[in-house]
Every structure is written in C-alpha cells, then in structure tokens.
Design a protein around this nucleic acid. Structure first.
Lengths: 216, 216
DNA sequence: ACAAACATACCAACCGTTCGGTATGTTTCA
DNA sequence: TGAAACATACCGAACGGTTGGTATGTTTGT
C-alpha cells in the first residue's frame, strides 16, 4: 500500500478555526453551555489541537474576545463610511452601517463580547475584562468624530464625546438583546433608529442644553 | 429522645428561596455556569427539594424568569413615581427611578432576564421566551404614559409609543452590559442620562419639524 | 391516614483536562 | 549537503471530578 503522501493544507490554522467556531457557537449557546467538544466539532479539529493552542477553555474565551476586537476593528476601519469627509457624516454613516449589518439570524449579527460579558461577569473575570476592552476600545474609535462634529457646530454640551460614544454601544447592545429575545431583527433596528433620532436632535440643536425634565 | 416538635417557619418556602437564589446567582455567574448544587447551597435546601419543585433545571430557568416578571412588575407598580398625575412626569419619574435603583454591585442591579436572554438564545428556547415575555411585558407598561404624553402635547411622530417604550429597555439593558463590563455603575448611569436627554428632546419638540426649541 | 414537602444516597453521562504519541517543518553544524 | 537535533502542530484515548437527574426514605401539616 503506497504512502498517501498526505500534505495537509489546512495545517496551521486550527487556532483560527477554533476562534471562528467560538465566535459563532458562543453567540448562539453562550460560553458555559458551549463545550470544548462542541468547539472542536464546529472547527473540525481534535481536542489535542484545542489544548495545544489554548491552556484552558477560559483562555480560549479570552482569545476569542481579543480576536473579536481585532476583526471588528479592521472591519469598521475599512467600511466605506469611513471615507466621508465630514465628521458628523461619518458618525451617521457609522450608525447606518451598523443598521446595514443587522441581517440574518440574531446569532449572526449580535455581539460576541456583549453576550459573554454578562454571563461570565462573576465566573470568568479574565474573559469579562477582555470583553470590556473590546467594547470600550471600539467605543473610543467614535470619540474623535463626535468631538470634531461638536467643535464644527460649536456645541456646548453637558455630555462628553466619550459618554456619547459609549451610549451608542449601550443602545446597540440593548438592541441585540431585544432581537435575541424575539428572534426578530426589526426589534433591534427600531432601537437603532431611536439612536439615530437622538443624534439628529443633539447635533441639530445649536446650543445643546440637554437639561433634565424639570417641571414644565 | 423527645421529638423537637418545633415549628419550622422556613418550611414551605423552598421554591421561593430557590427562585431568589436563582435571581442572585444567575445574574453573577450566568445560567449554564450555575449548577443545581450552587442553587441549592445558596437557597439552603437540598437537591430533593429542588427537583420536588422543578422538573428540570431548565424549568427553574423559566420559573425564575416568570418570578422576575412578577416581582419587578409589583415593584414598579408600587413605586412612588406612579402616583404622579402627568403622564410625562410619570415617564421621567420612571427613568429617575431606574437610575435610583442602579446601586451596589452590577450583579445586584442588572436584569436577570436580559442576562439570560443572550446566553440561552440557542440552548434553551423556553427560557428565552420567558425572558422575552418579561422584557416586552415590562416595556408595554410604559406605552400608555408615552401615548398620553404625546397626545397631551400634540406630538406627531414617526415613532410609536411601543417603539419608544422598547427603546428605553434597550438602553437599560445596554447600560447594564457596560456596567458589568467595567464593574462601575457610573457607566450605566451615563447611558441612562442620555436616554433622559433623548426623552427631553423628543417631548420638547413641537410638531413643527426642523426648528426645535427647548423647554416649555 | 395521607399527601405534600422535604432529605439522603446514589448514578450514569458528560465535562475539562491530561498525556503519550505521531507528523511535519526548521535550525544547527560537521 | 545532509542528517541529527529540535520545535511546532496535531491526534485521540483515557481520567477523575462534576453535573443533572433519580430512587427512596423521612418529616410535617391537616
């Protein structure tokens, strides 16, 4: 019987395939409910490969969050709206882009790190921290455009670019929860529309007072 | 040896104690990472009691979501802001009340059903549905006040009371994610402040578009 | 007496992890 | 040049602890 002379072209990418499997499976089933076997099966690798690349399951969770941060970062950097000249246009372009990628099953468009953050809060602090870095790191990329848009319009606000940037993430994360609850992406889109309306109101008011509702 | 003949006041409340334990532990560790033993230990009952009251662990998850819906419903119904006469005052009173109860550790003020929704999306549809009922049921309680406030101010909007009510829940859920990510409740409060500002802008804008003015 | 409300003991399946081993490059140095 | 030495990538059976769940006994209120 002749030697198969097997050359494995997929050799060397077990780690990447596991991270992609983690991204997809964990978004649907959650971190704890996803077993190592589940991940290996989804990635088409063996347990040996898994524990060659990741010391523990928790380490994979941390790596998956970091992988999510990397890939999404590149994804948004190369998005077409980034080429717009006006900072405010870029901000609204971002929101529109977020709306555009809300498509298919909720498990496909929702946020891995948002999902993991809540469930691992008390059980895997290391994963939670990696998720926090991803969320707030992404939020920070919005700050320059918000700040520039404020300056261009002479807006004096009682809110900061950072707080508004984080608020956009809060709305998106909350929108994902609603969409997962019903399985209907429309529930997410509705909320993002409210976010868009909020931004419109904020940046169409010359001197944004934003006062709390104190007894009209 | 004489029989203790003691009246056990805690007897008969194993179910309630398990549901309260579930509420507290699951918010910190997630549903899947919380074992039946964890719950029994936290509730001070045995496994026999657990499976006497709940057929499966999943059934407890469903019951916990229902229990959450019941208790929170009663909690908000009896809140002081509910006694305000003006619908818009009640709406802002709700937001202020939500801010007020954001205190202590994130595991104590975040939402059980919001946490569970994401992680059980693909693994326990029954729990997810119970969570959805809780979230959207609570959102629905805001609709009458929003509708009344719109009518009182003659607001013609391209959004519905239902969509705004759901948006408030999205913001709150997203705010909880941010707070759990950092462990800092201030991150949640900031986002709720943006929600408050959005509501202020919405209800201070008369029907004429494009020329919003502040205040009453 | 009887059923509901527990408690105790136990089990089989599953889980994350370990580990001895193979296959395929890569570096070293005579 | 080439082959020994080393490094990396991967395999998969097996292990011990944990898990959700069960079977059965005991207490309690009516």
């Amino acid at each position: 019987m002749p030697r198969p002379a097997k050359h494995h072209p997929e050799r060397g990418d077990a780690r990447a395939r596991l991270l992609e499997a983690a991204r997809d499976v964990i978004r649907a089933k959650g971190f704890a409910a996803t077993s190592v076997d589940d991940l290996c099966k989804a990635a088409g690798v063996t347990k040996g490969a898994f524990f060659h690349h990741f010391e523990t399951k928790e380490a994979l969770g941390v790596a998956a969050a970091a992988y999510w941060a990397e890939t999404t970062s590149a994804f948004f950097e190369n998005a077409p709206y980034r080429k717009l000249e006006d900072p405010l246009d870029r901000l609204f372009g971002y929101v529109e882009f977020r709306k555009a990628i809300i498509d298919g099953d909720p498990a496909e468009f929702t946020c891995l790190v948002g999902t993991m953050t809540q469930e691992v809060y008390g059980s895997h602090p290391a994963i939670r921290d990696a998720c926090a870095a991803s969320i707030f790191g992404h939020a920070a990329t919005l700050e320059p455009d918000i700040a520039a848009a404020m300056a261009a319009r002479g807006i004096e606000a009682d809110w900061t670019p950072a707080s508004l940037a984080r608020h956009t993430q809060a709305v998106l994360q909350g929108a994902f929860i609603l969409a997962k609850a019903t399985g209907d992406r429309a529930d997410a889109l509705d909320s993002v529309d409210h976010l868009k309306r909020y931004l419109t109101l904020l940046f169409s008011t010359p001197r944004s007072k934003g006062n709390p509702h104190d007894g009209c």
